[in-house]
Design a protein around this nucleic acid. Sequence first.
DNA 1: TTGTACGCGTTATCAA
DNA 2: TTGATAACGCGTACAA
Lengths: 332, 332
Amino acid sequence: MDNIKDRVTIYQVAQAAGVSLATVSRVINKQGNVTAATREKVERTIEKLGYKPSGLAQALATNRTTNIGIVIPSANYVYISNFLNGITDVAKEKGFSLTLFATSHSREEAISVIEKVITTHVDGAVIFDDELDVDDIIKINSYSVPTIVINNKVQGERVGCVTLNYEAALKQLIEEYYEKGGKKEMAFVHVHNAGRLLSRNEKAFLETHQKLGRLYKVINCDDSYSHTYSDFREYFRKNGSGYFVAYRDSIAAAIENAATDSGLRVPEDVEVFSLVGTKYAKIVRPTLSSFIIDMSEVGKRAMYMLIDLINRELTDKSYRFDASLEKRDSTL
Amino acid sequence: MDNIKDRVTIYQVAQAAGVSLATVSRVINKQGNVTAATREKVERTIEKLGYKPSGLAQALATNRTTNIGIVIPSANYVYISNFLNGITDVAKEKGFSLTLFATSHSREEAISVIEKVITTHVDGAVIFDDELDVDDIIKINSYSVPTIVINNKVQGERVGCVTLNYEAALKQLIEEYYEKGGKKEMAFVHVHNAGRLLSRNEKAFLETHQKLGRLYKVINCDDSYSHTYSDFREYFRKNGSGYFVAYRDSIAAAIENAATDSGLRVPEDVEVFSLVGTKYAKIVRPTLSSFIIDMSEVGKRAMYMLIDLINRELTDKSYRFDASLEKRDSTL
DNA sequence: TTGTACGCGTTATCAA
DNA sequence: TTGATAACGCGTACAA
């Protein structure tokens, strides 16, 4: 094999092997209709020249890229990376490449991302973005790109969705808390701009309290461990108790650490609950009670659905993951 | 804009606008040499037809994909996802797409991944894989794909590298520990198959101890929090002290949690140190002393270098990140 | 079984 | 300023 090579083309292989490029193409795609002799001859020259077919040209000719677009928030959350992991597993198994599109917290940018997904010519897309509107997703679908949407109910010819249901579990958690005589005031820890998943849970939290006629609080905080920690250190100077429902492990850990460092006892004085739990929920101390949905499984499911959708074999266009409760030491 | 559309081509736009496709191409690429009038006319029909150029065809014609291949281990580590985050930031800023290739712990697979990188026709690649051999990387480079390699010293015409230097800091840590009269026996927590980064540090650990004529231990453990936790619960039945150097936060946290839950005091009885620290080092309790390299910065640097390499403007082909010590509460 | 010729959607070179 | 027309690298009817 030569060392520095400009891209070897199928034509050069054909010439070197003394056949036509159609024959080489047949060999590459294992299409039969080729003598064992010529096949071997071609394979040898392919090896010798170090020929690798151009996925680009193949895609252009066949109109299939074997490439799937993944749209995820650029926020560096553990559950996102778990999700991505499930996706890569299936992609590898099924022979798809993944093109990554990261969005930050802005609609404008999210839309430009969609344009990119379209020009990139993917066979399908998985969209996990809390900011993107239903309309935006319909747009991508109007270009007939088969799409699986996570965490958003969408209808459409070539769209499927995987929804994450934390709300039911949250409602039950709250109801049971009061039924069992929970005395602390519950507070929902609101993070600005954290997306639809959080908003939906906040809504469920409020509605459940209103239905039960219970008082509650909403506390605003930053989407960062350090800020939340110092905010709650401040908070615990004036308040000695509470039940805090936080978005994810880092935030919840910040609260329980702030409580502990303020001389309060968790869970006796302060209870903390993490909505979107990851493995870190059991690493921190006290261990965090949390809901859990295996995001890696969500990623896998999304990929399997997408592949079916691409092959027009997807019968059930929506799938729901229900959060399950993992009771640990941060709540009574 | 229509709803379901088969891909609109430049040719259809040309026809609808009553111009030639060359003119449309000029408008798309903002190349001037077009009357304001025709430009507007074309832009309107582009809008009306919802035309998006095919990146595939563009790439084939220009031999540039504006697509960069990222090879990372599929292991779901926080520092990998930080790294990926830095990369996506720069990719977004510079207008590149990212194609993701995940490798697991097998050479064979890693090689097939390289084949894919080549067929995918990327403009460049960033390879962060602990398993891949130097030879493998030379192979990808023989196809003249500009490549930045993380955590591996490689020479080559179109290769650059970013190295992560934990060893110097580790050596210093050990030396200072004994200088200051550290009494505990140090143990390196070995994880099987965790890649070159860990091996190099293990080697540095051993060599420093041998040089100092100190006794040390090597303890094997699984690359999982739960297994490590229970292994060390077992371990602490028989051993009441030690200084443990672990690969990453989860492993280190498992050890300190096991110690604490066994009634031992951290850091008085048991000291724990995490080599590759992340933000979780300060979330767990006691907070973990660790080395730190901002992996997001590593990702950014790699991308900037790669882009320079693609443009043949990279002067300095290697860059080193040195780990810095963050002393916290898990060591004295 | 093998080869010819056209198409995939662009860019780019030359004439006009 | 515009418009033909040849690449780009491959797949694939169709013909041989």
